[in-house]
Amino acid sequence: MQSNLNKLENESIFIFRQAYRSIPNIALLWSLGKDSNVMIWLAFKAFLGKIPFPVVHVDTGKKFKEMYSFRDKYVKKWDLNLIKGSCPSIHKIDPSLPPAARSAARKTEGLRNIIKEKNFRGIIAGIRRDEQGTRAKERIFSPRTDSGTWDIKNQPPEFWDQSNFNYPKSVHVRIHPLLSWTEIDIWEYIKCEKIPVVDLYFSKNGKRYRSLGDEDITLPVESSAKNVDEVIEELKISKTSERSGRTMDHEEENVFERLRSKGYM
């Protein structure tokens, strides 16, 4: 394994173990995308083959059918303890948000409900700093109030692998083991470890998905990359951003920050 992947892998394992040790009742968010599959793989490494907490799929009901069949196959194969969460209808969401962002905000609500229902104190999410500007500002262990809000201006310090875990019961902690990874790191790791991903990431009729969200608000990009190696080669020269196919990001300048401060991943 390349030394930078090795370093990232070890950092992530350390974070997983630290979270499991320090936070009672945690769960891993499995969005069925490439990043969350890498997370599951890293959790196998951290806990030596058996993940000691549930994985949660917050289902908007609007994912691609390939994603649902992927889920059903690997729940069994990986012996996961899957919890399915559902999302409220669009009418219950802040109407001031632009349309695609409003649709994405359903997931925030769904997540909030399942956290409350199961009383989770920690949620492991596969966000990365290179995806989007406000995600770049995240902490590895990031506290959220019970309404799920992110206090961007008053984040706790985090250094030398030491974090604060002593929070009131009303707070849950978002745990971000992939924060330091980049898109290409993810693909190189998938290649190196032979981690399965949904076929939608690979080119069909000259197009592929670079990032997977709800079917109605996710667009494919022009690409001829038919397998992991070709994806890696493509990314080495690409000048478009990973989330360019996610319409919600581009509707208004600060929409992503607004979504995230309300509890979106």
Binding site: R129, D130, Q132, G133, T134, K137, I152, K153, S180, E257
Partner: peptide, 18 residues
């Protein structure tokens, strides 16, 4: 990237750029 920083012209938190 944070809205506030653009308006005030200062960096509030650490950011990573690859």
């Amino acid at each position: 990237a944070l809205q506030d920083e653009r308006d005030q012209g200062i960096t509030i938190d650490t950011t990573r750029i690859f």
